[in-house]
Design a protein around this nucleic acid. Structure first.
Lengths: 194, 194, 194, 194
DNA sequence: AATGAATGAGGATTCATTCAT
DNA sequence: GATGAATGAATCCTCATTCAT
């Protein structure tokens, strides 16, 4: 009987390598060979486990999103008040696990991918939907009918902060981003309360 | 008797064609031949006038930014109060000329380009700098020492609104984007005033 | 306790699968994996039992020829007159066992294979030799010195009928082919007799 | 103004090279590079002028058929009696121009190609149709209602002679093939007349 | 000014084959 | 006996770029 169960190991290795390579070069113009080399295997094997370069990219995107999703879920676990919920969502967005150099660098490229590849588009829609509903859940008790509009601007602000981070040099500054988002949130809530 | 002054005409045609093609496909993976064909000339001529594909892309980016710059300048011409200045900057960002389907679709790709191509990076930095200083000029009289922070979040929000527009289907909704940015601005100012 | 005598079973399965796949696709551009899958085993096992793809093809060819040979032998068993012998050979050529869709589709490809692979060439030569000697054995008593020439044209006609069948759609029509070959034979004999 | 009118020259060179290579190796497993090299150009240029390997093959097939067609037309030009017409068709089939080593070697592969590629299938059908109608035109006056059946067997015989030639070593023997086909024809006609 | 002609370099993908288990 | 794992080698095709005219 042969060595078994390599598939998940290889796929994970490829997905990670893809994220690193995309993040490093800041571009989807990465060759399968590069990714495979970084993942420690031949490009033929990469195709064996993923079928195509595109599917590898979508797999990488899915992985980034699942990391993000896990982070959010974990942060929401210990939450009791609506405000805490909002804070948790925002902090998870800029947590060190997600707001890493590579991940942010890859993230921008995933937006581009979503313009072309339906699978990627779907994933992005799921992400946006979850972010929105998480924000709404926290905002409704605090902002009432203004919740939807605040969720919209807060979501756009978060995306914008990611975008700007992708262009900066040096490591991303998560706390600063959190501070800016929280400030936006509090300012909006303060106005509603009056 | 050679035709005179073809250069600017050809370059403009190519730049426009590049923007359309990038916007249409949502990707930088556009061939020089595609662009040249749309511009009504051979790909050899495209190279003659631009030297390389990359320079064509940078040219396209520069054109988009110069359109934006002109729009802003025009809007600022008739302005007297700081608040009007802020409003003008925001409205120019989402004016029909800039906030077109193609331009927005191309814009996201220019961010990606900036990760790889120094010339593109520089252009993007110039854009960000101008936006920031324009916002600051309007904010300082109204928000004092909070001006910098508000300029930061407002700029990020504007970028985020562009980003989100790139994924939506259908024509961009400029007025809605303006409304959201203005709302953010007024909320922030309201808080400072108290 | 290893399973005993798997080799002939596996080989037969592969040979049949190869014939089906070649016949089905009408081409030698069939992958070992396809054949192995149809034979219900891994491609590695296919190599274990056949050493190489080429040998599998030659094995498939040999099988088709041995089926044909058996058919001829059986038909010749109950034969008494030279004319019956000729008729038997012709009918065996277009018997339902040989003149099946797949077999005919594969057959054309075996001719191509024979251009490249010496083993296949030898097999084809053996087939042609047998056909010729079988025809001659029946023709000599009936046509004397014309036997050789009639055997030649009759053989070419049979091959031609196979060839044409390979391009037609729908199931091969054995009886029609037999009728045409018999007609050729009888016409030739009639002329000789006079 | 650039060098002009290369297209037909290049295409012809490629078509000839393809025929030679297919005939030489006796297989469609010929690389585009091989063909291009023999035609004296890069493989990229071959793709430029033909789009794909398959189209090159179909082009080669079309060329062989057009040569054959021209030969037949020329031979039919000086014909007056039905019998001369038949003789001309047969002789053209085995004329030195068509019955060359390479062309015959390639011919068998075109039959294989026709199993897979619709364009090739169509060409083959056209060839068969023309051959048949040419034979019928000569046979009807001589054989009346037997014309159809004789055309069928004569056509199959011609194809079979080609097929057999493809496997022989050494140069094809046109006259021998002609003799065999003519003999078949005359035998068939002799029988009808009685 | 303009373009058809031409190519080198590269890249995704496939596949026969080998090997460790 | 059997197979998942793995790869080297090859192949088609694309494309930015250059050049002669």
């Amino acid at each position: 009987m042969p060595k078994l169960g390599m598939q998940p190991i290889r796929r994970r290795a490829l997905v990670n390598a893809a994220i690193v390579e995309i993040g490093r070069t800041g571009s989807l113009e990465v060759t399968v060979s590069q990714i495979a080399r970084r993942a420690g295997m031949s490009s033929a094997l990469a195709h064996h486990y993923f079928g195509s370069k595109e599917e590898m990219f979508v797999g990488a995107m899915r992985h980034v999103l699942s990391l993000y999703g896990a982070e959010v879920r974990a942060a929401l676990a210990g939450v009791t008040t609506p405000y805490e919920r909002l804070r948790a969502v925002i902090e998870a967005s800029f947590s060190p696990a997600n707001f890493r150099r590579e991940a942010v660098g890859a993230w921008l490229n995933f937006w581009v991918l979503a313009q072309t590849v339906p699978g990627a588009r779907r994933l992005l829609a799921v992400y946006q939907g979850r972010l929105r509903s998480n924000l709404l859940a926290g905002l409704r008790p605090l902002a009432g009918e203004s919740a939807a509009s605040i969720a919209g601007s807060l979501g756009a602000l978060i995306d914008g902060l990611y975008l700007r981070e992708a262009l900066k040099t040096g490591e991303p500054d998560g706390p600063a981003a959190v501070a800016m988002a929280i400030d936006h949130l509090e300012t909006a809530l303060a106005r509603v309360r009056r």
